[in-house]
Design a protein around this nucleic acid. Structure first.
Lengths: 244, 244
DNA sequence: CGCGGGATTGACATAATTCAAAGACCGTGG
DNA sequence: CCACGGTCTTTGAATTATGTCAATCCCGCG
């Protein structure tokens, strides 16, 4: 569970996208000294809402989710964390949301106090964190439009295009043939993302398949014959995607 | 429309809550030099989504909203801006959302470029902005739970308690008798906040009134006999409010 | 006094949920 | 290798919350 492998920051796959993206080599070596890796198995909880948060960190590989749960069990995902995304809030003692590994997960962690100290003296870290937080806020606001106003079909189409976009931005490999994506979430997790039930998710995926908007191989692997068609179904403004 | 009144920062009502909260007197005087006030009438648009954003700034008095609109006219509010809230995103050229004054509004503005330059040399501003952005992100995530999983009745109860909480935090006056709040939004604006139609908003407000959870004087003024009862109706965890 | 923009209320339509059953997929162990 | 069990997924039928369309009401204001 607790790996002690130590990758050089310079070799890190998220070096140029994470909180450390803007750091100079000397700043990086300071981070290097306080970092440690942790691995989590798929399904494992990283932090429980309300727990004391002893570390912050970045997702290196794998996928994690941020969720909120009501007393009666209704759940809403409020964050989908891909490699390079930051977990935790400097200056806050306890976690506000549950963080769960949905795939096997490796995180690059910093104990909170040393990280905060370093942040105070290293503007490049704070700058990057501000930038990332503003991006997340924008994403949250798009997500709010989805939750508040889109139909179930539009929600599904939106989710697939969001995943396609994020996948494309992570691997600089330009898709040669038809665009394909792997859904990193179960139907239930998609439902929690979209504010739907898992049955509705399943029905709408079937409907999109029947209408030729997507095709499936297995439950997770999606092919997209026309990204424009998909974006249209998502109800986004024509160029909202920026994909391609 | 374009006021040229110039308030001293030291006399500013939002001095200790806005982006400038952490500034020392010398930093404040630098801000003082580049700031200017602008007034907007109720209903007026401050910025259109997609427009070039030539300024950033803080709400001084009044209320503004951030909204997103789909091609077919569906609208979702994604931000409710009260005094001290920040508008605009340093480092971004065009606005991502519509900003509208819902009451008469006074903003303390900074042209974007000078503000960004100042931010680069004044960590106190960037620090405070990060803190505010993280708070907004948390609020957005609570809002996502509301949009995705709460019933219409819970949404209304949540909105009223959110407004009560924010009003309470703005005026340090502890409420002596029964808690009362003024809804700063029309039924339609509430609907856009909550992802509902205005008819459903109206019906649920009537229902809460009939059940004694709230009482109304006029359309805007709400009295809350029991804040605990209201929070219960909102579906929030018992102590979610922190009010009182 | 009457106008007009909100707001309320009613009747009906419908998208999404709920409850239930059956099917597919995947790893495990015989 | 195949059978088994469990989990995830699909599909169906009935229910319900919310949306839609439309009429009326209310209240502040010229």
């Amino acid at each position: 569970m607790q790996d002690h492998v130590h990758i050089q920051c310079s070799d890190c796959p998220i070096r140029h996208r994470a909180v450390c993206a803007r750091c100079e080599t000397d700043e990086l070596s300071q981070l290097e000294q306080i970092k440690y890796y942790r691995s989590f198995q798929a399904g494992q909880t990283v932090i429980w809402s309300g727990d004391r948060m002893e570390f912050v960190g970045s997702v290196v590989t794998g996928i994690a989710t941020l969720t909120q749960t009501m007393e009666d069990g209704r759940r809403q995902m409020v964050g989908l964390l891909l490699p390079s995304d930051f977990v935790g809030r400097p200056g806050r003692a306890t976690a506000a949301f549950d963080v769960t590994a949905t795939t096997d997960l490796v995180m690059c962690c910093f104990r909170k106090k040393p990280f905060e100290d370093l942040m105070a003296t290293t503007p490049h870290i704070a700058q990057r964190l501000l930038e990332m937080t503003l991006d997340e806020l924008d994403a949250a606001r798009e997500w709010m439009l989805l939750l508040g106003r889109k139909t179930a079909r539009e929600k599904i189409a939106s989710l697939i295009s969001i995943i396609a976009r994020r996948e494309a931005s992570l691997q600089p490999r330009q898709p040669k043939g038809m665009l394909t994506v792997d859904l990193p979430l179960t139907r239930e997790e998609m439902a929690d993302y979209l504010g739907l039930t898992l049955e509705t998710v399943s029905r709408q995926i079937s409907a999109l398949k029947k209408d030729g908007v997507i095709s499936l191989e297995g439950n997770r692997h999606v092919s997209i014959p026309s990204i424009d068609r998909l974006l249209e179904e998502a109800g986004d403004d024509s160029d909202g995607g920026m994909l391609v």
